[in-house]
Design a protein around this nucleic acid. Structure first.
Lengths: 145, 145
DNA sequence: ATGAACTCAAATAGAAGTGTTTGAGATAAA
DNA sequence: TTTATCTCAAACACTTCTATTTGAGTTCAT
């Protein structure tokens, strides 16, 4: 079995996820583990909740570690976006960890879905960390919540 | 304050991380929160431990969800199947946990029912985990005529 | 050597999470 | 209809985690 130690999942939860991942039904897993399908359902739900919590935790920490945040409005071109990243970095004494073409690629990778003809279709929030990392915040990309 | 809800960090932990990120010493944070520096140290340690756990949790889940999957069509010979497992493993930087004859046996054990004259009677989906395990996905075996 | 910043371990009360049972219900296919 | 699959909620005993205190260390620059 995969190792649950060092994670927020319990052994039981990993056991269930593994078997479910292989395509077994909850009932089959329940039989294998000597319990009921509704119990397996509950364990699976707890596991998924834990995974979601882990995701949000890393998201939050990244935000906390981004001392500089700014938002660019819809319609901004990628060139302008890249320029503004450097400008905000300079202003805060942060050396951006990417040279210009790298940054262009990095941002495009994260913003592809909201980009059209080299312009942003949505206003977008950018975060800079002390060590020069550049993040796009999820709610800018996802919205719809 | 940033929102700790939905994460595995407590409000207290986020409070401490935020103030520390702004550059305050543990003593300063302690004064602000009305407690001791050693308590702040402990809270900070707990928070870091939680972040690490979150990181490992997502890592584990990614492993569970088999990072490499591919499908071979009906009529493929076992020899070709085995070759492709190694090829996909190489491509993804995964060292398959079986030497060739072992893998042959392993796959045959799982695919015996859909095999005839050393050829697959059905198209079959294979999953590779990071640690080199080779899985056959249930829906390939069970369903889809 | 003094002080500042930080770490570490043991102990404790209270809070939060765990797997489980039980029983009910939703949904869709046979 | 029945059956299979899965979900949901309340309750439970049990375990783990949390913040906190106390007291003792470490490291390091002055």
């Amino acid at each position: 079995m995969a190792e649950a130690q060092g994670t927020i999942l319990t052994d039981r939860q990993v056991e269930v996820l593994e078997l479910r991942e292989k395509g077994h039904t909850q009932r089959e897993v329940a039989d294998k583990l000597g319990t009921t399908d509704s119990n397996v359902s509950a364990i699976e739900r707890a596991a998924e909740s834990n995974v979601e919590k882990a995701r949000r935790t890393l998201e939050l920490v990244q935000t906390l570690r981004a001392p500089v945040q700014f938002t660019v409005s819809a319609g901004t071109s990628f060139d302008d976006l890249v320029t503004r990243v450097y400008a905000h970095g300079d202003e805060a004494g942060i050396k951006i960890a990417y040279c210009r073409p790298e940054l262009y690629t990095h941002l495009y990778g994260m913003l592809e879905e909201v980009t059209n003809a080299n312009r942003l279709e949505r206003s977008t929030t950018i975060g800079l960390t002390k060590d020069g990392e550049v993040d796009v915040y999820a709610d800018s990309v996802t919205s719809t919540e």
